[in-house]
Structure formats: C-alpha cells, structure tokens
C-alpha cells in the first residue's frame, strides 16, 4: 500500500466539497444576519452569533401573516411520506402482478403502465385537476397526495428487481406451501427490502420537492407545503425578510437530510448489492 498522502486528489475533493457546501453555508450564515444588510448585498460569510433566535422564531411564528414554519414542515412531511409510502405500496403490488402471474392481457397491463412514463405530471395537470375538482378534493390532503402516487418508474424498478429473483426461490416457496400472499410477505418483501429503502429515500425527496401540483390544488394556507411557503415569503411585498427566508430554507433541508442519513445504510446496500 502506498501510504503517502495524495495531495492532488485531496485538493480536488476539497474543492468539490466546498462547491457543494458553500451555497448551503451562505444560506445558513445569512439566516442569522440583518435582513436589510442582506438586501443591500452585504452578506457576510460568518454567522452572526446573536442571530440564531431566528430559527426558533420562524419555526414557531413564521413570517408575519403567514403560516408558522412547523406547520408547513408537517404538511410537507406528511405529503412526502404519503407519496413515498403510497408509490411503493402500489408499485410493489403492480410489479408483483405483472412479474409473477400469468393472466390475460398481462403484457397490455405492463405496457399501459410503461407508457404513462411518457406523461409527466405537468402534461396531465389540467385533466388531473379537473378530476380532483370533480371529486371535490381540491384543498384536501387527499387531493394533494393521491394524484402523485401512481408511479410507473417504481413499478418498472420493482419489476426488474423481481425478475432478478431466481425461479428456484419461487419454486422452493411453492413446494414449501407458500401461497401468493405469503410468498409476497415472507420472501419477496424481505428480499427486496434494500431496494424498497433506496426507493423510499428517492421518493421521499421527490415528494418533498413537489411544487406545481401543491400550488394548484391547495390554495388554503393550512395546506401550504414548505416549498410553497418559501416562495410565498419572497413573492409578497418589497421588504423581504431575507433572514427568515434563509432560516426557513435551512429548516426545509433538515427532514430530507434526516431521511437520507437514517436510510443511508440501506440505501447504499440497495444501490450496490446484487442479489446474494
């Protein structure tokens, strides 16, 4: 082993890290400073040690006239969680059906799911809105989450995972007497657990970052997500409370980071480990 420190590699990597960390740090430092100074472009890289109260302030009270940040965080968290869990549940079941069962029009079902990949949320957003309006689900948590749950991507991913499961494993379970439901619960789910975890992280962040659909379907401030909330803070009047916007942004980063950290072990396993 070469134990000498490779300086070139270290410098490149440190520069890379700095490139990614700098904007986040800037927002973090800015949150603690005077909004007027930020507006004038006098943003310091050093946080003002007396300004940390802003985090508690936005969390509890929010910007004047708007929903408190904790509430928006809760809405976002609920939405991201519902979308991730819902997507995973539906895709697991649909992938299970098209992979392991022989039924008429099986491939038609598969391709129907597949071609919805060609239709991003934005393209079908007007009809989706019309449907939700028809059901009277505008301004409801259901309306916020359900249309985002159907997922071709996750179905395809699980189909690939399931296809990689050796036939003999399926047959061994059949010989052992496991019916379709038991096989799904006892064998398939645990064997795909790492993939489920990886997908959960990706889908949670996807749900957390939703902007267009929540903007349309939830006009009630009680259903404002954190992303919508930040935009509303900036948009209203000339005197933008930049420190509070930045503090809110920092807070908005925390839940996805927490999810990634908690699931990291599983996440990496799901991405790298083959069936073993």
């Amino acid at each position: 082993m070469n134990r000498r420190i490779d300086w070139t590699a270290h410098i490149v990597l440190i520069l890379g890290v700095a490139l990614f960390v700098l904007p986040v740090w800037l927002v973090f430092a800015g949150a603690t400073q005077d909004p007027g100074a930020i507006d004038r472009g006098e943003l310091s890289l050093l946080p003002n040690l007396h300004g940390f109260g802003v985090f508690a302030d936005v969390l509890g009270n929010g910007v004047a006239g708007a929903t408190p940040v904790w509430r928006m965080l809760a809405v976002s968290f609920g939405m991201a969680l519902a979308i991730a869990v819902g997507k995973i549940a539906i895709s697991l079941l649909s992938a299970y059906a098209v992979t392991f069962f022989r039924f008429p029009l099986r491939m038609v079902c598969f391709w129907t799911i597949f071609i919805t990949l060609m239709l991003p949320v934005e393209v079908r957003i007007i009809p989706t809105y019309a449907v939700m309006a028809g059901f009277g689900l505008i301004n409801s948590f259901t309306g916020l989450t359900v249309p985002l749950i159907a997922s071709a991507t996750a179905t395809l991913l699980f189909r690939q995972v399931f296809l990689a499961i050796p036939d003999e494993l399926v047959e061994a379970a059949r010989m052992d007497g496991a019916g379709p439901w038991r096989f799904f619960r006892d064998i398939l789910l645990p064997v795909s657990a790492a993939n489920v975890a990886a997908l959960f992280v990706i889908l949670f962040v996807y749900g957390w970052n939703q902007y267009l659909w929540p903007l349309l379907v939830a006009t009630d401030p009680r259903l404002d997500t954190i992303v919508i909330g930040i935009v509303k803070m900036i948009g209203t009047d000339s005197a933008v409370p930049w420190n509070k916007v930045m503090a809110t942004s920092v807070l908005a980063l925390l839940p996805p980071i927490a999810v990634v950290l908690l699931m990291q072990r599983w996440f990496v396993k799901g991405l790298t480990e083959g069936d073993k």
């Binding site: 061994a172 010989m175 496991a178 064998i187 645990p190």
Partner: peptide
Amino acid sequence: PAERDIAMVFQNYALYPH
C-alpha cells in the same frame, strides 16, 4: 405442489437468503 407431500432439493439450493 404444496398438496402433493413432496419435497425437492434444488440445484442452486434455493435457500431463502434473508
């Protein structure tokens, strides 16, 4: 298969990995 009262040993063992 489950109702036949037959047990099988597979070439790749087919053990449940988890």
